[in-house]
Design a protein around this nucleic acid. Structure first.
Length: 554
RNA sequence: GCGCUCGUAGCUCAGCGGAUAGAGCAACGGACUUCUAAUCCGUCGGUCGCAGGUUCGAAUCCUGCCGGGCGCGCCA
């Protein structure tokens, strides 16, 4: 019996109680969640349904709980139901009903955890989107890890997802980049507002290698060559770093294309039709204050140039035209000032900003060595890059560390902690379970212990306290995935995996799987092997969501 | 000044309006002739920033205050 099954059973019991008592069944919720109490005296699972319904129906919660308990007690697989406190239902399962889960998980394999929670949603997920004027830096790294994990999470919850990197290849940042390359190639210092990292010299040299005569061209043409070739090189390098980090985007979207296809004008026309455009001081404005922004925003400047915000509008419209109904954009904390204008812009298009546009804000990340933030970079001189991160921690630890915390909280990642081989390093703690379960399975095969046919599995033998705890933890996986997807918070998966890891280590410590010496193989050992393999399935599936490997041995 | 956001154990952080607020680390004390001790067990540790409010019930929701971070261009 999975928690989802149990929840359904509790709901149908509630329906039966309502019908018997002539209560309005429309007050029943569509779903209910089962809690896993910390205190073992509170049973295997607890439900607060009677408390919630007591409020709605006006019937005393304890009275409802008593009726529910009686109804539930008759259901197969349920050992006992107790009423506690103001109306909690504390439910205990038969060992057999709980144990079957081990087999269900193994048979489901990589599909365990998949759901239809977000089935009807078409989600566009944009993250990183670093300008191709330098390597991906520390903020982008956080989003690379979290955004990629989120995309996997959303797909597992049944959504149709398109991941997207907005390649900002128009605009003045690129001009500065091109001029910086040109200056570097001529051996001159970087311009006042240019880029000065060591990577500039590398890219400039690479441009020279591809276009040896570039410095003989007139300055404008030369800068144009540096822009074109330099941006291509920089972008190839960014893509390469991301690929090595295990992050792939379905779409790399060029800002230039928006301009070339006239989509900025199209967006402006659309907004004008909606009646939110006005002209003032020679510029063209969007009246975003109508929808809560703190000031109106210019789309086209008095000199005729488009603003960056105009491109944002066109890009949003483009995504919507491609059939995405939820536009999710992940930004650094320094961009949170955009939320107001973006939400307002969505409303100006006639959309519902609460539903069609989600902007997720990620707080800062510091890489810490010996208690001091790491500021040095071999390449850029000032910022920490994706490559610096991977050099310091490795891909698995970097991805896990960044996906482990709520994006709302600023984090300090201590290099010493995340490279240590021990249980104070969360990624090792979890990965070690993957290795341990694989090792147990290998050793079992060596002595002739196999799971055997599913029909020969004896779930009732998994009655040890630690087996029960582990089963309960494994049963929560689908709900954790669904909730993490809905909340857009992959860190719940990591925290959950740490719980499963703890439960497995305690099981391993107390419940031996393999026979000792020449002992004959028993059904209990076979049942435990099912549980061992079910644990490996959950750990592997969960780590895969985070883009972290589940090693066979360590 | 206005806006957003955060404030939970010595540290790093979890915590869905529910039961006695948790984990890891640190500190201290235990467990390896047995499937990998990269593990497990125990002890210590809290005015959930402060003050009100809503609620049967608040770390969680609302208001105010205090403190930290960030943002407030016809920049990108």
């Amino acid at each position: 019996m999975t928690p989802a099954n149990l929840a359904a059973t509790v709901l149908s019991a509630a329906r039966a109680v309502f019908e018997t008592r002539g209560l309005d069944t429309s007050l029943l919720p569509g779903t209910t969640t089962m809690e896993r109490p910390r205190n073992p005296e509170h049973g295997d699972y607890a439900s607060t349904l009677a408390l919630q319904l007591g409020k709605k129906t006006g019937v005393a919660p304890r009275e409802l709980a008593a009726a529910l308990a009686e109804e539930l007690g008759r259901q197969p697989g349920i050992k006992s139901v107790e009423i506690a406190g103001p109306g909690f239902l504390n439910i205990r399962l038969d060992a057999a009903a709980a144990g079957v889960l081990a087999r269900d998980i193994v048979l489901a394999g990589a599909d365990y955890g998949q759901s239809a929670t977000l089935r009807d949603e078409r989600i566009n997920l944009e993250f990183v989107s670093a300008n191709p004027t330098g390597p991906v830096h520390i903020g982008g790294v956080r989003w690379a890890a979290v955004g990629d994990a989120l995309s996997r999470l959303l797909r597992t919850a049944g959504a149709t997802v398109g991941t997207e990197y907005y390649f900002n290849d128009a605009g003045s940042q690129i001009d500065r980049f091109a001029k910086s390359l040109y200056a570097s190639a001529k051996g001159e210092p970087a311009p006042e507002d240019g880029y000065g990292g060591a990577y500039i010299a590398e890219i400039a040299a690479a441009v020279l290698a591809e276009a040896p005569d570039v410095l003989n061209e007139p300055e404008d043409a030369a800068i144009e060559t540096f822009r074109r070739v330099g941006v291509d090189l920089m972008f190839a390098e960014i893509k390469q770093s991301l690929t090595e980090f295990g992050v792939h985007f379905d779409t790399y979207f060029n800002e230039k294309d928006l301009h070339n296809r006239g989509e900025l004008q199209e967006a402006l026309d659309r907004l004008r039709e909606q009646g939110h455009i006005f002209e003032a001081d020679g510029a063209t404005w969007l009246r975003t204050t109508e929808f809560g922004d703190d000031k109106d925003r210019v789309l086209r400047k008095s000199d005729g140039d488009w603003t960056y915000f105009a491109a944002d509008c066109a890009y949003y419209l483009d995504k919507r035209k491609r059939g995405f109904d939820r536009i999710v954009i992940m930004l650094g904390a320094d961009h949170h000032g955009y939320i107001g204008r973006m939400k307002a812009m969505s409303a100006c298009f006639g959309d519902d900003p609460a539903k069609n546009l989600e902007i997720l804000i990620g707080q800062l990340v510091n890489l810490v060595r010996d208690g001091e933030p790491v500021r040095m970079s071999k390449r850029a001189g000032t910022v920490v890059t994706l490559e610096d991160f991977v050099d310091a921690l490795g891909v698995d630890a970097t991805r896990y560390a960044l996906a482990r915390y709520s994006s709302d909280s600023p984090i300090n990642l201590d290099i010493a902690v995340w490279t240590k081989a021990g249980n104070d390093n969360p990624v090792y703690y979890v990965q070690y379970v993957a290795a341990r379960t694989a090792n147990v399975a290998r050793n079992a095969a060596d002595v002739g212990l196999t799971r055997g046919e599913p029909a020969g599995f004896h779930p009732e033998l998994l009655s040890h306290e630690k087996e029960n705890d582990l089963l309960k933890a494994l049963g929560e996986y689908p709900a954790v995935v669904a909730r993490a997807a809905e909340l857009r918070e992959p860190h719940h998966v990591a925290r959950y995996l740490e719980e499963v890891a703890g439960a497995y280590h305690r099981f391993y410590d107390k419940c031996r799987v393999l026979p000792l010496g020449d002992e004959p193989i028993t059904d209990l050992q076979r049942a435990r092997l099912w549980l061992n393999d079910a644990t490996r399935t959950v750990i592997a599936n969960g780590l895969a969501l985070l883009g972290v490997s589940a090693p066979e041995r360590m």
